[in-house]
Computed example of a mutant assay.
Amino acid sequence: MPTPILYDCDPGHDDAIALVMAHRSPDIELLGVTTTCGNAELEKTTDNAIRVLDFVGASDVPVAAGCARPLARPLVLGTADGPSGLEGSPYLPKPSRGPLKQHAVDFLAEKLAASPDPLLVVATGPLCNIGLLVLKHPHVLPKVKELIWMGGVFYRKSEIITPTEFNAFCDPEALKLVLDARVPITMIGLDVTMQVLIEAPQYKELAAIDTPLGRVAMDWLKFYEKLHRNSMGVGGAMHDPLALALAIDPTLVRTRPAHIGVDLSGSYTFGATVADFWHDRGEEDNARIAYDVDADRFFKLMFDLLR
């Protein structure tokens, strides 16, 4: 039986590929998509989600728009995906429909409450919607089987890893709300996602997928690579597709429990996620974090689904 999931995102080139994977995987039943601000303003990320879903024949998947700004501070947009959030997409049609009239947070609460079993939630943007869910609908939190979130960073393995990851930086108060609510959460941070980079071998494999979807994905990744290549000297990282892939195969990464704190006041590390593995602060574990990934198996899964 496929795993039913709710997907919260801010498309975003890598979110777009994750959306395609979620729709095409026989192991996933995509119950709905909710959108938030982050890589672009909410109206744009919502349009992008609808454009991608319509393009791959998933116009029956409901899309609900959520938070237009972080919960407690002004919106700072991401820069990797261009002004629209999905630049370099000449093949994509304009959105054929609008989002549901229902707010994303109420949509999530309704779906969770109606499900006979707890549901898996995947989130690959700032946690504005999930944080507001904690505040507005705390009664449905026991129906969250697990939250898989692409966010945070925990080890400084090289100079390309910054102290703070964007999704955490954009709305750290929402992240703290979710962590304090003790929702079961697995965090896929930059230290792991930067191990799944699109480089020459991956471009060669993608070029062999001579379909409309293959060409769109190539356009996405070529645009998305620009920031990574110019600023860090590496290809684009598959941050969000890796998080989504765990809904299909959780053995792709290895995780360990920790207590995660969020820096809400640092001048240079604002929004940083700090892992305490040894309970030095006397706090109970509130998350599992990924620390290693089988990159070859991940790319095989991603390309199989894109084919």
Rank of each mutant, 00 (worst) to 15 (best):
Gly82His: 04
Trp149Lys: 07
Ala68Gly: 05
Arg281Gly: 15
Ala258Pro: 05
Ile17Ala: 06
Thr79Leu: 14
Ile209Gln: 03
Phe107Leu: 04
Phe166Leu: 13
Leu135Met: 15
Pro116Lys: 04
Asn48Glu: 04
Phe154Val: 11
Tyr7Gly: 12
Pro26Ile: 08
Tyr268Gly: 14
Leu112Ala: 08
Gly12His: 12
Gly78Ser: 04
Ile130Val: 06
His239Ile: 07
Thr269Cys: 05
Asp285Tyr: 06
Asp210Ala: 06
Thr36Leu: 04
Asn167Asp: 13
Pro99Tyr: 09
Val192Asp: 08
Ala258Met: 02
Trp149Cys: 05
Arg288Ala: 14
Pro116Ile: 01
Val253Ile: 12
Asp294Arg: 10
Ala217Cys: 15
Pro142Phe: 01
Val153Phe: 11
Ala272Phe: 01
Arg24Trp: 10
Leu127Gly: 06
Lys101Met: 08
Gly151Asp: 03
Asp292Pro: 12
Leu71Val: 08
Leu264Glu: 09
Asp240Thr: 13
Pro70Leu: 05
Cys37Met: 04
Ala109Lys: 05
His137Ile: 01
Lys300Ala: 15
Asp27Lys: 14
Leu71Gly: 09
Thr3Ile: 00
His228Tyr: 13
Val178His: 02
Tyr7Val: 09
Val63Gln: 00
Val63Asp: 03
Leu306Phe: 05
Pro241Cys: 07
Leu197Asn: 04
Leu19Phe: 02
Ile160Met: 08
Asp263Lys: 01
Glu173Thr: 11
Glu225Phe: 02
Leu86Pro: 01
Pro2Phe: 00
Pro118Glu: 10
Cys37Ala: 13
